[in-house]
Nucleic acid binder design. Structure first.
Length: 800
RNA sequence: GUCCGGGUGGCGGAAUUGGUAGACGCGCAGGACUUAAAAUCCUGUUCCAGCAAUGGAGUGCGGGUUCGAUUCCCGCCCCGGGCACCA
């Protein structure tokens, strides 16, 4: 019986004492940066999801180490943020204290996992040594015009009492606490990520899941179209509309302005429409994001602004409206027509005339005969010189025409908004800016960093939307770094996603006190070769980190443009099909299973459950299969019969196993790698195994069951440590069988099977198939009209 | 609404440049060992019929292409995820 707990503790101690996992960054071996998204030290325990994510990453890292790479596999803690602060508000325990305690506990558990974390390089984002450099990065962005403060309607979470970035709002609700998000006009800090749309759309050289790239692309939302100028009839102003559908310009019968557009006030000022428009705007503002989006087209709010404008292509006089369905995207003004469903419905409601310019065959059609918009592509009519053309083919030509006539100009738009990074909360990195009576907004110089977060703040939210630091005079009042005069500090803190957007740069440079990172070290170690984390970060952390890295790259601070070369997402572990959560009370804790079966069994079971990217549903029962496997493995190594029945077959199967396990681990298919071990074990328990094969077997299992392998390796007289032994090689020839068993089909139905040489000729194969009684029986039913032989796959007859 | 994934035994899952569907494990049934139990070992296990050989059905549903389809094509249904007034 394998004494898992005892043996695992023995090796955990030895690994620690020997500093086996402290990566020597200067080694001559090829580097491999193996990274998993660092955990948030909330609660004080690793949950099953952490294990499911981390253990396979470690298995992969161990495999790469045995393949001869100098593997850097660091671990750290994303320790700023709301959970710690909310916990503090609830219990009165300072986040600094609870975070330190949780990190300690998590390190103990992470060690029990038996993973080769390099804790010597750990980062803790809430430590001044770290956030000093988060602030420094803020400064770099500020100095280059990429960080700015502006007053804007922003997402506000009434429950978290803070603003949120667009990326942190899901279905109109706070991504953290699910409260409904409202809009609030506040002065906030932004990072100018919207300038980086095109650079972020360049995925050259990245080995990322298609889906993740697609999600980011959708989020960035590049669209090309043109801005078309519609002069007001009275000549007082010009309305610039953004459209991707310049082909419908001849059907435009009205223009619509977004309610938030400053132009609305100018247009109605001093007219009889002023009062009505103002009331309508208030009503629209009262709607939440969800309401505004859920109302169907014909119920949209809006009204006439009392002005007319001229369609530049045909000189027609058309009315100007304001409506809730127009967003502050593009120019915030759109041209409207019968080829858009929203426009169509809005026009019907307000009795605005409509006309078509596209139909299936180019013959004139009339909106009066239609219930809704005509949104299909087709042939243009009533469109001047473009009549008779396919609308999609005409589109680029019409844009050229519009530009040529000076009616407007081609332009590109992105859906991506600037990243709102200020938070009205205590537990975050202070924004290194002060406000001086004399000098105005002043950036804190590098020599004065970090701006230290005070320990004595009253972290309870004030309820007025202001940061708790507002009331901390010791923090707030300061001297201006420029003139030495009286000044106050910025009291907002940074979004934790800023902290996590550069941590991967810090790990290999963690011993530097005088800079965030060292260019030469970065050049050696970045990009991250393998990055593993949840898919929910596609448009948050993964986008932010790319943005920050690209900025640092553009500033010449980081050699590589992209931070993460290969990306993989782990799936989610559920319980009875439901997401595990404390509130549902269905959380499965790993500790009891580790206690009972040991870490190796537990992590191997998680890997055996299914493909890594799929996740799975937790079931207490299945783990016994892995426990049995480990016991049988242990017994085999210690007392397995060395009397081998078939030496050649043993050798062949061993080489097949080497190939299979290596290939599977490389693509994170741990489930089939474990299956292959079981099959091999079942084979050698019958066939017997020799000492050489035992050693190879132990090496192969080392990435998946590190403690078991280390102990077996010692038993077999191997030199410490097994992870520093060379991964076994296989002979391709030995992995191919000389004979194959293939099926014989008659009219597509399997009627027998034959064992033939792998390179048997068609004649040999067919002859062998005809020797089967059952096959002959079916062949006798008619005349053979076709004979099929696919070597190694199938023999087939078609009987007519 | 739209764009991605996915749907295989009682369960987790294997197998796709079209070629014997169900590897491996769990569970279950029977047997061995034991006074007994646990543990362990052996045998069986997609469903239906049959002692068996074997035959029939079968990879969400309905069609199609093919000697042959879980795999390719068309049309649906269901589940998971992303985006959602972006003009």
């Amino acid at each position: 019986m394998y004494q898992a707990r005892e043996i695992e503790q023995k090796w955990q101690k030895k690994w620690k004492d020997s500093e086996l996992f402290n990566t020597n960054l200067k080694s001559k071996k090829p580097k491999f940066y193996n990274l998993t998204m660092f955990p948030y030290p909330s609660g004080d325990k690793l949950h099953i999801g952490h294990w499911y994510n981390f253990a396979p990453v470690d298995s992969y890292g161990r495999y790469m180490r045995m393949k001869g790479f100098n593997v850097l596999q660091p671990m750290g803690f994303d320790s700023f943020g709301l959970p710690a602060e909310n916990y503090a508000i609830k219990t009165g325990v300072h986040p600094k204290i609870s975070i330190a305690k949780n990190i300690d506990h998590m390190i103990t558990q992470l060690t029990e996992m038996g993973a080769m974390w390099d804790f010597a390089k750990k980062v803790v984002t809430s430590s001044p040594e770290y956030y000093k450099w988060t602030q420094w990065i803020f400064c770099k962005l500020y100095e280059n015009g990429l960080a700015y403060k502006k007053n804007a309607p922003v997402n506000w979470c009434p429950s978290c009492q803070t603003v949120l970035a667009n990326e942190q709002v899901k279905d109109g609700a706070c991504d953290r606490c699910k409260s409904e998000v409202t809009k609030k006009d506040l002065s906030q800090w932004f990072f100018k990520i919207s300038d980086y749309g095109d650079k972020l759309l360049d995925y050259e050289g990245l080995d990322w899941p298609e889906k993740t790239i697609l999600m980011q692309k959708d989020w960035i939302g590049k669209s090309s179209g043109c801005n078309i100028n519609f002069p007001l009839e009275d000549g007082s102003d010009v309305l610039t509309c953004y459209t991707t559908r310049a082909d419908t310009i001849h059907s435009v019968t009205f223009v619509v302005v977004a309610p938030e557009h400053p132009l609305v006030d100018d247009l109605v000022k001093g007219t009889k429409y002023e009062k009505e428009v103002r009331a309508m705007r208030e009503e629209i503002k009262k709607q939440t994001l969800i309401e505004r989006a859920s109302v169907s087209g014909k119920d949209k709010l809006g009204c006439f602004l009392g002005k007319y404008t001229i369609n530049p292509v045909n000189g027609e006089k058309i009315p100007v409206y304001m409506a809730s369905f127009v967003l502050m995207y593009g120019t915030g003004v759109v041209m409207a027509d019968a080829h858009d469903q929203r426009d169509f419905e809005f026009a019907r409601k307000h009795n605005i005339p409509l006309k078509f310019v596209i139909s299936e065959d180019g013959n004139e059609i009339n909106p009066d005969d239609f219930e809704g918009a005509y949104t299909e592509d087709g042939i243009l009519f009533d469109s001047g010189d473009f009549s008779g053309m396919n609308n999609r083919e005409a589109l680029p030509k019409m844009m050229d025409y519009i530009e040529g006539k000076n009616f407007g100009n081609k332009t590109i738009n992105f859906r991506l908004r600037d990243w709102l990074i200020s938070r009205q909360r205590y537990w975050g990195a202070p924004i290194p800016v002060v406000y001086c009576d004399k000098c105005g907004e002043v950036l804190v110089p590098e020599k004065d960093l970090p701006v230290v977060l005070p320990d004595d703040a009253d972290f309870a939210p004030s309820g007025d939307g202001k940061s708790p630091l507002e009331k901390n005079a010791g923090f707030k009042n300061c001297k201006c770094p420029k003139c030495g005069g009286k000044a106050t500090r910025e009291v907002d803190t940074m979004d934790t996603f800023v902290c996590s957007s550069w941590y991967y740069l810090r790990y290999p440079c963690n011993d530097l006190d005088d800079k965030a990172f060292d260019k030469a070290t970065i050049k050696n170690w970045l990009p991250v070769d393998m990055y593993v984390g949840g898919p929910e970060h596609a448009c948050m952390h993964l986008l932010y980190a790319r943005f920050i890295n690209i900025v640092l790259h553009d500033l010449g601070l980081v050699p590589n443009k992209e931070p993460f070369k290969k990306l993989i997402h782990q799936g989610m572990i559920t319980k009875d099909g439901a997401k595990m959560s404390k509130s549902k009370g269905n959380v499965v804790g790993p500790d009891a299973f580790v206690e009972k079966y040991g870490s190796d069994v537990f992590r191997m079971y998680l890997m055996f459950m299914g493909p890594f990217t799929d996740g799975g549903d937790w079931n207490d029962k299945g783990i016994t299969g892995i426990a049995r496997f480990v016991d049988r493995f242990w017994n085999l190594i210690n007392e397995g019969s060395e009397k081998v029945l078939d030496k050649d077959l043993l050798k062949k199967n061993l080489h097949k196993l080497i190939k299979k396990v290596g290939n599977d681990v490389e693509i994170f298919h741990f489930n089939t790698a474990v299956s292959a071990f079981m099959e091999f074990l079942n084979f050698v328990l019958k066939n017997g195994i020799d000492a050489g094969a035992k050693k190879v077997l132990v090496q192969l299992v080392a990435p998946l069951a590190p403690h078991l392998a280390e102990e077996c390796w010692e038993v077999l007289g191997g030199k410490f440590s097994v992870v520093d032994s060379k991964w076994p090689e296989y002979d391709e020839k030995l992995t191919i069988d000389d004979t194959v068993t293939i099926g014989v089909q008659v009219n597509g139905k399997v009627r027998g099977e034959v064992e033939i040489s792998k390179d048997a000729s068609k004649e040999e194969a067919l002859a062998s198939a005809r020797s089967q009684e059952n096959v002959l029986k079916y062949l006798a039913e008619g005349k053979v009209v076709k004979e099929i032989y696919v070597p190694g796959k199938i023999i087939g007859f078609v009987v007519g």
